[in-house]
Design a protein around this nucleic acid. Structure first.
Length: 326
DNA sequence: AAGGAGTACAACCGCGGGAAC
DNA sequence: GGTTCCCGCGGTTGTACTCCT
């Protein structure tokens, strides 16, 4: 009954990975693609358990990962998404494709928690010192600013997405397709087909985009991952490997100042492409409907007839709307 | 310069869902 | 249909590094 055991825990190495181990792992994955992690230690001779290999790959070695400081926009995205989704770091990470869930989680725990705590304390102090509704703290005002900005970003993304959809009527009007996700083919398998969908969706934006600076040493690696890698691909892996990391690097690079993409969509709007990754995530998780906010946002993004946006959702969280900033 | 405190982040651990047998 | 295991996820820990006294 059942499968053979994965890996005995005897002789399994722990602790930091050495560069040699990294090289072995990367070269193996270059050749075979990610997935089937159970076979990795056996085939590479690495004294690591499959779990450790997968973790090392997804959190550190995978191409397209942006390391280092989180910029202001990413930070705000994380704060907002955390408010919406809770500690579902993988879901949040799917909206920030260059960041890993582990990275985001760490950043939240080490930076943002404290920051928000300070913010709240500052707010409390402000409320104590100044009574009445006119005593909105400066920090809170800033928070409201970026929240409203995010709302507008999402609105712009929806418009851009609608334009893109209108360019692909044959696909979106297919009777076989679902009503809420017109771009997604009914098959739950293949992220190859979804890659096509996304490519179509973005082609008008992408075609002027210059090559990503990431296309250097990692290019061959990424190319080898653009093929389906079996059933072991996680949603985030699907996002990164199937959706042409180079392209998404440029799409999602908040810091990018030279992306041709910004010619048609401002950098502010890049914050909204989460729906692309959300789409991937949704697809790769097939019919998972446990992610209510994601679903609602995605449904809204693809629902042409809807006059209500995620403002409703955001309003539930923020309890405020405002357009004076724009 | 040395040592303690604080910070950042890589890696591990345990659990749950779903697939394989 | 039940059992076992893989995979992915979130929480937590360990350790290296930086800052402060």
């Amino acid at each position: 009954m059942g499968r053979p055991p994965c890996c005995d825990k005897i002789g399994v190495k722990k602790g930091p990975w050495t560069p040699e181990e990294d090289i072995i792992l990367v070269s193996y994955i270059q050749e075979h693609g990610p997935g089937n992690w159970r076979a990795v230690p056996a085939n590479t001779g690495l004294l690591r358990c499959s779990k450790s290999c997968r973790l090392r790959w997804t959190n550190y070695l995978r191409p397209g990962i942006k390391r280092g400081n989180f910029n202001d926009h990413e930070e705000k995205m994380i704060i907002h998404l955390q408010a919406l989704l809770g500690n579902r770091w993988a879901a949040i990470a799917s909206y920030l494709p260059q960041r890993t869930d582990n990275d985001i989680k760490n950043y939240w725990n080490t930076h943002l928690k404290k920051k928000l705590k300070k913010l709240n304390e500052g707010l409390d102090d402000s409320n104590i010192n100044q009574e009445g509704s006119s005593s909105v703290s400066h920090s809170m005002s800033n928070k409201g600013q970026w929240e409203r900005r995010l709302q507008t970003d999402i609105h712009r993304a929806k418009q851009a997405l609608c334009e893109a959809l209108s360019l692909d009527k044959p696909i979106s009007s297919s009777p076989d397709l679902g009503t809420t996700t017109p771009l997604i083919q009914s098959s739950t398998t293949s992220y190859a087909s979804s890659t096509e969908n996304i490519s179509r969706l973005l082609k008008n934006w992408m075609k002027d985009s210059p090559k990503s600076p990431h296309e250097t040493s990692s290019e061959t690696t990424q190319n080898s991952f653009n093929k389906p890698a079996g059933t072991g691909c996680s949603p985030s892996e699907g996002t990164h490997s199937a959706a042409t990391p180079e392209g998404f690097d440029s799409l999602f690079s908040f810091n990018s100042s030279n992306s041709g993409f910004s010619q048609s969509v401002s950098m502010d709007e890049t914050a909204n492409f989460p729906h692309e990754t959300g789409l991937f995530q949704d697809e790769s998780k097939s019919n998972s409907d446990t992610q209510f906010p994601l679903k609602v946002i995605e449904k809204w993004l693809f629902d042409d007839g809807s006059q209500q946006g995620p403002y409703d959702i955001i309003d539930m969280t923020l309890g405020e709307t405002g357009h004076e900033l724009f």
